[in-house]
Structures are given as structure tokens and as C-alpha cells.
């Protein structure tokens, strides 16, 4: 059985709405009112998302973020804290039976679309289990997955431009510890699209779109009015609330 996928092209949204939209599409796929969907997005203002098992205050310098207008949000998915700025995020949401049943295998398959997309830009990357994609051993993409009531959601980021100084300012590392050595060590472990290919963020988006769409029956679509409404509701009631974001 082939199913038609909806593609939602790159949109710039705030953290709460971005997470609300993923949640609303999951609900729609579960109830059969939404087609399986791949969407691409960026974050404005920049934001930090944390994994669902993390503690916000442990991971994030909350005061610095508030002072600098950086949003904070807890994801539905596990994994680590991510500073979202100068990167392209994707989410893929479909019935779980459309993907390999093994979790690592499904990461491998979905990360394969990103690896193909990056190859279009001349970047040779590989899957690094559990949930990363690396270029010459350095992380360029982190990914996180959840499966709920028969629906799989995976979202992840592809780093367009890596700015460790900014990242260390918002993640919870005391200023004294932000040494040159640490920044150098981060640069030894993390890379970016710009380090390997002189392309625009738009070109990265198009390459990822091609990676995700290859061999797939798809159409370019938008959110339905019901999804918009549900996403907004999630954004105001759940993802912007302290009771969710600071629950652990």
C-alpha cells in the first residue's frame, strides 16, 4: 500500500507553536484526519528544547535565556538539550507501521533521507547510532523519536552554522567553565553544513526536501484549519506553560 505524504515546506515559527504543530499532526494522523506528514521549520526567536526526561533548570541557563529572549520548551521526545538557531529542523509523522519496527532501524531509515539530502550538497555523512548523523566523526544532526498510540514522530535538526559560544551561553554551564579549550573541544565534536558547503539555508532546506521525498508519493500542503486550531491550543495550554516545561 502506498500512502500519499503531505510535505509542509520551511516555515519560521516560535518554539511553542513548532512543538504544538508536531503534536497536532500526531493527533490528526492517529484519528485518520491528517495525512502522514513531513515538515521543515526554523525557530524564531531562537530557542532551547530539552528532552522529555531532562530537567529544565539542570540543562538550561534559564535567566540568560529569558534576558536574551530565547524561548524554552520541553519536547515530547527524549534525547538531549538543543539550542535552535541557524539550523533546519524537520519532523516526520506517520503511522508507526510505515516504519521499521526496530527503533534504531527506524532512526537509520529516516536519517538516511538526511544523509541523501546532505550528499546533494556534496557533504558525505553517516548514521551514528543511537540518533546522530556525523561528518568525519563530528555531529551535524541530532534526532529524536517517540511512538504513541500507533503513531511515530521523529524530529531532528541539521546544523547550518555552529556557534559554540552562543550555545554555551544558554546551556547550563557556568561562565567560569566556558574556556577556550571547551569551545575548541566542541568544535572537535560538532560541525555544520557551512563548514563543508557554501550554501544558503534555503538550499539546505531544498536538499533535505529532496532527501525526504525521494521515491515517495507526496504533495505540497499546508496545515488544515483543525490542525492550526489544535496547534495553537497546544502552544498556549501546554508548550508555553511552566507546568509542562519545568515539570522535572
Amino acid at each position: 500500500m502506498t500512502e500519499k505524504w503531505r510535505i509542509i515546506e520551511l516555515q519560521e515559527k516560535g518554539a511553542y507553536l513548532n512543538m504544538g504543530i508536531d503534536n497536532a499532526i500526531m493527533d490528526g494522523v492517529k484519528s485518520g484526519t491528517s495525512d502522514p506528514t513531513i515538515r521543515f521549520y526554523t525557530w524564531k526567536p531562537p530557542a532551547v528544547s530539552i528532552g522529555c526526561f531532562q530537567s529544565m533548570r539542570d540543562e538550561v541557563n534559564v535567566e540568560t535565556c529569558k534576558k536574551n529572549g530565547i524561548d524554552l520548551v520541553r519536547r515530547l521526545t527524549g534525547g538531549g538539550a538543543v539550542y535552535h538557531d541557524r539550523e533546519v529542523t524537520y519532523s516526520i509523522i506517520g503511522s508507526a507501521d510505515m516504519f521499521p519496527s526496530g527503533i534504531i532501524e527506524s532512526y537509520r531509515q529516516i536519517c538516511g533521507y538526511i544523509i541523501y539530502g546532505l550528499s546533494i550538497l556534496g557533504i558525505n555523512s553517516t548514521f551514528a547510532p543511537i540518533n546522530d548523523i556525523v561528518v568525519e566523526g563530528k555531529k551535524i544532526s541530532g534526532n529524536a523519536q517517540t511512538r504513541r498510540e500507533g503513531v511515530l514522530l521523529q524530529h531532528g535538526t541539521v546544523i547550518y552554522d555552529f556557534e559554540p559560544e552562543k550555545m554555551f551561553g544558554v546551556l547550563n554551564i557556568s561562565k567560569e567553565k566556558i574556556s577556550d579549550k571547551m569551545i575548541k573541544s566542541a568544535k572537535d565534536r560538532v560541525t555544520s553544513v557551512l563548514e563543508h558547503s557554501n550554501v544558503s539555508m534555503g538550499e539546505l532546506h531544498l536538499a533535505l526536501l529532496r532527501g525526504f521525498c525521494k521515491g515517495r508519493d507526496y504533495y505540497i500542503g499546508t496545515l488544515s484549519a483543525e490542525e492550526e486550531h489544535a496547534a495553537l491550543n497546544y502552544s498556549t495550554e501546554k508548550y508555553s506553560s511552566d507546568s509542562w516545561n519545568f515539570s522535572r
Binding site: L76, G79, I130
Partner: peptide, 15 residues
Amino acid sequence: INILGDFFIHPESSI
């Protein structure tokens, strides 16, 4: 007790 971290548990409610 809180079990925190960057791991994955499916389903997440098991935590």
C-alpha cells in the same frame, strides 16, 4: 526520585 537524562524510553510514560 527523579530519573533524568538524555536517554529514550518508549513509551515515555513508563518513567
